[in-house]
Amino acid sequence: MCTITPTGLPGLDLPHHGVRPTITEQFHAFDSQHPWVDRALEQLVSSSASRPARHGSA
């Protein structure tokens, strides 16, 4: 099985001393490099929460 590590992906360039970073470490690295993602998700959730729920299909 090929185990090529993609380069340039957030979180994968952490110093990990021969051990792959945990998913938590990768998340924190991505989160710190892309703070706008949290704001965009918060806006999306708040805008969808203000609309009435749709039931059934269109």
Rank of each mutant, 00 (worst) to 15 (best):
I4K: 08
F27T: 05
D13F: 01
T24H: 12
I23G: 09
S48V: 11
P35A: 01
I4C: 08
M1P: 12
L14V: 00
V37L: 02
E25Q: 15
H34V: 03
V19A: 08
H34N: 07
A29F: 01
L41G: 07
V45Y: 12
L14N: 03
P21N: 05
L12S: 03
L44Q: 13
E42S: 12
R54S: 14
S50Q: 07
H28D: 06
R20P: 10
E42F: 07
W36L: 06
S47Q: 15
E42T: 11
T5K: 15
A53Q: 06
P35T: 00
V19W: 06
A58I: 11
P35F: 02
M1C: 09
T5N: 13
R51G: 03
G18M: 02
G56S: 01
R20G: 12
V37G: 00
T7D: 11
L12H: 02
L14I: 00
E42I: 09
I23L: 11
V19E: 09
V45M: 12
M1D: 10
R20N: 11
I23A: 13
H55E: 14
V19F: 06
W36S: 10
V37Q: 00
G11W: 02
G11M: 03
P10I: 01
D31T: 06
S48Y: 08
G56W: 03
A58S: 14
G11T: 02
Q43P: 04
P15H: 00
A53T: 08
H16P: 02
P52E: 12
P10R: 04
P6Y: 02
T5C: 11
L9A: 12
D38Q: 14
R20A: 14
L9W: 07
D13I: 01
S57K: 08
G11C: 01
V19G: 03
T5F: 08
G8E: 00
T3A: 12
L41V: 10
Q26F: 05
I4F: 06
H34I: 02
H16F: 02
L44H: 11
Q26Y: 05
P6K: 00
L12Y: 04
P6I: 03
P6W: 03
P35I: 02
L9C: 08
H28L: 10
D13M: 01
A53S: 07
Q33W: 01
G18Q: 01
V19P: 02
Q26E: 09
T22H: 05
F30I: 00
F30D: 01
V45D: 14
T22S: 15
M1I: 10
Q33L: 07
P10D: 01
A53D: 08
H16K: 05
A53H: 05
I4E: 11
L41R: 13
T5E: 14
A49V: 06
D38N: 13
T5Y: 10
H16Q: 03
R20K: 14
S57H: 09
T24F: 09
V45F: 13
L41N: 11
T24Q: 13
A40L: 06
V37T: 02
F27Q: 07
Q43N: 14
C2I: 10
A49M: 09
F27C: 04
S32V: 04
L9Q: 10
